[in-house]
């Protein structure tokens, strides 16, 4: 039995260890503290589970802008019909700590002269 326990513990550690840093992608731990603004052209929009995303092209590079799960995203008034490919969008939020990663999490999306507060509690005071 002792051998079994050792084998199981080793297996659990082997599985858990590489996953732990990746957990950062939930929440905001993987992003910079300061705000970041990105202006780009919509390539693709997805408002659905597990969370909504917006792909923006900026100077030939496609950025992945993460929004909230579909419920809060749609509650903010932002749906898949809000923008279409080719529209200009300003995303305000926090970018990835990894400077090579073209990825951010938005708290506010502005397009067509209208602002959508995806995470109202995190939007900086005007």
């Amino acid at each position: 039995m002792r051998r079994l326990r050792v084998v199981l513990l080793a297996a659990a550690l082997a599985i858990a260890a590489p996953v732990l840093p990746a957990l950062a992608h939930h929440g905001w731990a993987w992003t910079e503290d300061g705000f970041f603004e990105l202006t780009g052209i919509v390539k693709e929009v997805f408002v659905g589970n597990a969370h909504a995303t917006l792909d923006l092209e900026v100077e030939g590079v496609v950025w992945r802008v993460e929004l909230a799960p579909p419920g809060p995203t749609m509650a903010a008034g932002f749906t898949e019909d809000t923008v279409k490919p080719g529209d200009e969008v300003v995303a305000l939020g926090n970018r990835s700590l990894d400077p090579n990663e073209k990825r951010m999490k938005a708290v506010r999306i502005t397009t067509g002269g209208k602002a959508y507060d995806i995470y109202p509690a995190r939007v900086p005071a005007n």
């Binding site: 408002v47 659905g48 589970n49 597990a50 579909p70 419920g71 749609m74």
Partner: peptide, 8 residues
């Protein structure tokens, strides 16, 4: 399923 609150 895509936009469901409970099902997904």
């Amino acid at each position: 399923l895509k936009t469901s609150f409970f099902a997904y």
